[in-house]
C-alpha cells in the first residue's frame, strides 16, 4: 500500500513539475511581449515612420532604418531564395539518393544552425575587405546566405510531398523533368514553398549580428547599395545601449515594430502550412 502511495506521489510530483515548466515558458513569452508593448507603444507615433534617426538629445524616427531593413531583407531573399529553391529541387528530383545530396543535406543543416555572426565574418572577409568599405550590398549578401538553408529545407520537404503519380503522369505525356518541375511540381507545392519564403524573411529580418560589420549603420537616409545603410536591428542595438533617453525610446519602438512584423510573418506561415496539410489550400494536389 505504502509503495503504491509513493508511486502515486512521485507521479503527481513530476506531472506538476511539467505543468510548472510549461507555465514558466509561456510566462517568458508573455513577459517579453508585455515589456515590448508597454515600453514600445509610448514611442510609436507618426514621427517614427516619417523622420530619420536623430542625433543624440533630439527627437526623430527610424524611417531610414525601416527602409534599409526592407531593402536588405528583400535583396537577401531575392538572392538567397532562388538558390535555396533550386538546390532543394536538385535534392528532391535529381539526386535524391546520391552521395552529393547526402553531403548537401548535412551541410545545409549545419548552416541552418550555424552562428549568424560567423556568416557576417565570412562576408566581411570576402566582400568588405575586398571592396574596402562597408556596404548595404554586403549586408544583403550575408542575409542571403542565411536565407538559403531555410528555403532549401522547406522546398525539398514540400516537393517530396507531391505524389509520385503526378510526376509519372507528366512523364507519360512526354514531358522532360524540367517541364514537370516547372509546370506540375512547383504549382503543386506552391503554398509550401511560399511558407518557406515567409519563414526565411522572418529569420533574416531580425538578424543583427551579421549586419554589424557588413552593412554597418548610417544615421542618414541612404539608398546607395555601395555605401553603409541604416537598418533596424543595428539601430536598436546602438540606441538601446546608449545613455540617451530619446534613443532608448526609439530602440524600444523599433523592437516592437520588428517583433510584431516577425510574429505576423511566422503566424501566417503557420496558417498557410495548416491550410496545406488539411488540403484546403489546394496545396500538394491531394
Amino acid at each position: 500500500m505504502n509503495r503504491r502511495a509513493f508511486r502515486r506521489l512521485k507521479n503527481g510530483l513530476f506531472l506538476t513539475l511539467s505543468l510548472v515548466a510549461t507555465l514558466a515558458g509561456l510566462a517568458c513569452l508573455a513577459a517579453i511581449l508585455w515589456t515590448l508593448i508597454s515600453h514600445g507603444m509610448q514611442g510609436v507615433s507618426w514621427r517614427l515612420f516619417t523622420q530619420m534617426t536623430p542625433p543624440p538629445g533630439s527627437q526623430g524616427g527610424v524611417l531610414n532604418a525601416l527602409y534599409g531593413s526592407a531593402v536588405m531583407t528583400l535583396l537577401g531573399i531575392l538572392i538567397g531564395s532562388p538558390i535555396g529553391v533550386l538546390a532543394g529541387t536538385y535534392l528532391s528530383e535529381y539526386g535524391r539518393r546520391s552521395k552529393l545530396s547526402t553531403a548537401v543535406r548535412f551541410i545545409n543543416d549545419v548552416l541552418l544552425s550555424a552562428p549568424s555572426i560567423i556568416i557576417g565574418l565570412f562576408i566581411y572577409e570576402i566582400i568588405v575587405v575586398r571592396m574596402g568599405h562597408f556596404s548595404a550590398l554586403a549586408g544583403a549578401l550575408s542575409l542571403a546566405v542565411l536565407a538559403i538553408p531555410v528555403t532549401l529545407r522547406t522546398t525539398e520537404d514540400m516537393l517530396n510531398l507531391v505524389p509520385q503519380g503526378m510526376k509519372d503522369s507528366s512523364a507519360a505525356l512526354g514531358a522532360y523533368p524540367w517541364r514537370t518541375t516547372l509546370s506540375i511540381l512547383y504549382p503543386a507545392a506552391r503554398s509550401g514553398i511560399v511558407t518557406g519564403l515567409l519563414l526565411a524573411v522572418a529569420r533574416i529580418s531580425g538578424e543583427t549580428a551579421p549586419l554589424l560589420f557588413t552593412a554597418l549603420n548610417n544615421q542618414f537616409w541612404s539608398s546607395n547599395l555601395d555605401a553603409p545603410m541604416a537598418n533596424l536591428p543595428v539601430v536598436i542595438f546602438q540606441f538601446a545601449l546608449s545613455p540617451y533617453k530619446e534613443w532608448q525610446q526609439l530602440a524600444w519602438a523599433g523592437a516592437l515594430i520588428i517583433t510584431v512584423a516577425i510574429l505576423i510573418l511566422s503566424i501566417s506561415a503557420r496558417i498557410l502550412l495548416a491550410l496545406l496539410q488539411s488540403g484546403g489550400g489546394g496545396g500538394a494536389g491531394r
Binding site: G25, L26, C28, L29, A31, I32, T35, L36, H39, A202, S205, G206, E207, T208, A209, P233, I236, F237, A240, L241, A251, W252, A255, I258, T259, I262, L263, S266, I267, R270
Partner: peptide, 18 residues
C-alpha cells in the same frame, strides 16, 4: 512555444538588459 523561437535575439538582449 514555437513563436518564442521566432523572436529575434536582439529582443531577448534588450529585454534582458532593461
Amino acid at each position: 512555444v514555437e513563436l518564442l523561437a521566432a523572436v529575434p535575439s536582439i529582443i531577448f538582449g534588450i529585454w534582458g538588459l532593461f
